[in-house]
Design a protein around this nucleic acid. Structure first.
Lengths: 158, 158
DNA sequence: GACAAGAGGTTGCGCGCGCAACTAACCGGG
DNA sequence: CCCGGTTAGTTGCGCGCGCAACCTCTTGTC
């Protein structure tokens, strides 16, 4: 048995969609204009920087940045052409490929991070009390953890 | 003066991104599989059905469905080819074009709506208490209303 | 050890979108 | 009137993504 959404749910859903579209659009535009960096590139740099040895397997990275495997292949191609990452074979499993953050990539992230974090604060955090932020994380965490796992992207930690 | 995001903000932001990606992906897949309807088509049908006379100007519709003008032009092309909408000249302003919902479009929406609403409940509302939903809408509403207006898409009501 | 089944990545392909340039129509001031 | 500025919508173009097919390598089974 499963009832249809009630009014508060529909309102929350609608606001959720609008907020996402508007905020992402702004962050993307700012990061692009001020640092010449697409959001997807930034995401890759962050994930690699946080990873042990500044490297991740293609599949793991794809999951972390919410991209399909093929999408990530091309994204890594472009970032490699810009010198921000390298492909390294996995000696233990010759099918696998590590994506390794280069010094240039780390530097690029160092320069871009303040712009992006400022944007998150300015367009998102600024309007939220601590309680708001915690309520958001709690409610949306329930949503995420309630989803059966599938689709291109798997894991959710934090 | 503008400080960087604090920890609860960053957690909320991250969860927000993941929740959006996962839930949208699911809803899109379900609606496509069970009714052969992309989410963007569904959005257009809903907006037209809610509008006075079941018709909207291209620009207004573009704003309502969070799409650029050019994106909407092509979307309406495709939906017209499927008989779900029609283009009607605005007699009062010969630059303008109304997009009019057809009976077939209304019927298509009638059939698709239960699937989509069920999905919203199942993948989103189901996990939220009433208080959660209200807190979400409230917090994200502050975010949306805090954004200066610009970008492809303008208005936010409700 | 040979072979089927499956996992990791890449490639061919098509699609939907945004940007910028364009056309057509409206509108205000001289 | 008409002419510059503005608005509505469309079109040319390129890009980034997902899907599915594919190749390579690994793993389990007999």
């Amino acid at each position: 048995m499963l009832s249809l959404p009630n009014a508060p749910t529909m309102t929350a859903w609608h606001t959720f969609l609008v907020a996402h579209a508007r905020v992402i659009e702004r962050l993307e535009a700012e990061l692009q204009r001020e640092r010449g960096l697409p959001l997807s590139w930034y995401d890759v740099l962050v994930q690699l920087q946080e990873a042990l040895g500044n490297r991740l397997r293609m599949t793991d990275l794809a999951g972390a940045v919410l991209l399909s495997k093929s999408g990530l292949t091309r994204l890594v191609d472009r970032m490699h052409a810009d010198g921000l990452v390298e492909r390294r074979p996995d000696p233990g499993d010759r099918r696998g490929t590590f994506v390794q953050l280069t010094p240039a990539g780390l530097e690029r992230l160092r320069v871009a991070a303040p712009v992006h974090l400022r944007g998150i604060q300015q367009h998102f955090g600024e309007h939220l009390s601590d309680a708001d932020a915690r309520a958001l994380a709690s409610a949306l965490g329930k949503v995420v953890n309630g989803l059966p796992g599938s689709g291109p992207n798997e894991p959710f930690k934090q």
